[in-house]
Computed example of a mutant assay.
Amino acid sequence: MDSKRPVSNTSTDFTQSIEDDPLIDGPLISQDALESAMKKEFQNLPTPWIAGLLAIVNVAYVSLCVVLAVLCWLTDDHLAECKAVLNGVGTQTVVLLGKVALWLLVFVLERCIQRHHNSVRKRGYLQFYRNTRNLKSLPLLIHSSGNAAVLLVIAPSSLLNQKVKNLSIYLLLVVICVEFVMTLICLLIYTARVVRFNNQRPGPDINEEERAHAYAPNASDAHTETGFRDGSCLEEVVEKQADLIEYLKQHNTLLSKRILTLTSQQIRE
């Protein structure tokens, strides 16, 4: 006697499981509402004011050095006034202390800028982060190199002044002015890039890449930057992939929370 074994209908079971799901049984979420709720609002990068503050401080320091050198260092015409204003502190000491204070300020502001850029990287703007990674650190590098150059000038100052009168002072002013010009150029370029980024208000790199791929006439014309090709740096590719994976994990978690929130809101309505 042949026994008929019941044949399980996978499609039916799957349909029944979906119908039993309270989330699926609720009202459907419109695509427009879901996209508007899931789209993360663009946040401006608030670092241009930091770069502007740093530029103003550099201008003030260079102006102070030039005034002290002309009035109190190179000539003795205003020696009494300088001693009274500086309260007996030497002009060279004031310039060097100001140089140290300026370097500390540049270091603190560079760390603050780095913190904002790390936040931008976590929000998915990986290409912008890499394009400005070295630029935002250049002022600190320039000032550190300037400190080394100042030491090279101050250490043999007595020997230099024996050959040419006040040669060490002129060299010190040259170092400070060159340092100022290079720093100002870097700050202007950095500020222009950040302002352009804030004005464009782009989406995360992965969204912009998908949009470009969707509108490309041929799928092969849309290239990504996360794959390895001939001539690519393997370390850079691995870094890009790691950043992209980290962003996608955070993005998926955020989307899941917002989908559940929208679904619960529509069920209550």
Rank of each mutant, 00 (worst) to 15 (best):
S137N: 14
I185K: 04
Y190E: 10
P204Q: 02
H116V: 02
T226F: 10
L105P: 07
L104D: 04
L234Q: 09
E110N: 14
F14Y: 15
S158V: 04
P202W: 01
V106I: 08
H78T: 04
H143P: 03
E35N: 10
S3R: 15
L109D: 09
A69K: 05
E179V: 05
N198L: 12
L86D: 02
N9K: 13
V150T: 06
F42P: 12
R201P: 01
M1N: 12
F107H: 06
K165R: 11
A33I: 03
M1Y: 06
L152E: 00
L255R: 13
H223N: 12
L152G: 11
T75K: 02
Y61I: 03
M38T: 13
V164F: 12
Y247S: 12
P27G: 01
R268Y: 03
N218E: 06
S3Y: 13
N9W: 10
P46G: 00
T75S: 11
L138K: 15
D21T: 03
L171C: 02
V106G: 00
T183K: 15
A84K: 00
T263P: 09
W103V: 12
G26V: 10
K240W: 14
P204N: 00
T75A: 03
V195F: 07
A155D: 01
V181I: 07
P46D: 02
I267C: 02
R211L: 09
N252C: 14
L160E: 06
F42C: 00
E41Y: 12
T263W: 04
L151N: 11
D13I: 05
K257W: 14
R123Q: 01
P48H: 00
G52S: 12
A60P: 03
N9Q: 12
E19N: 07
T10C: 10
K83L: 13
I176M: 14
C233L: 10
L54V: 05
E236K: 09
L140H: 13
V195C: 08
L173I: 00
A214R: 14
G88F: 00
R196M: 03
G231I: 06
T15E: 04
N218T: 02
R258K: 12
K257Y: 06
Q250W: 07
H78F: 12
D221K: 10
E41C: 05
E81A: 04
G203R: 07
P48N: 01
Q16T: 15
D230L: 05
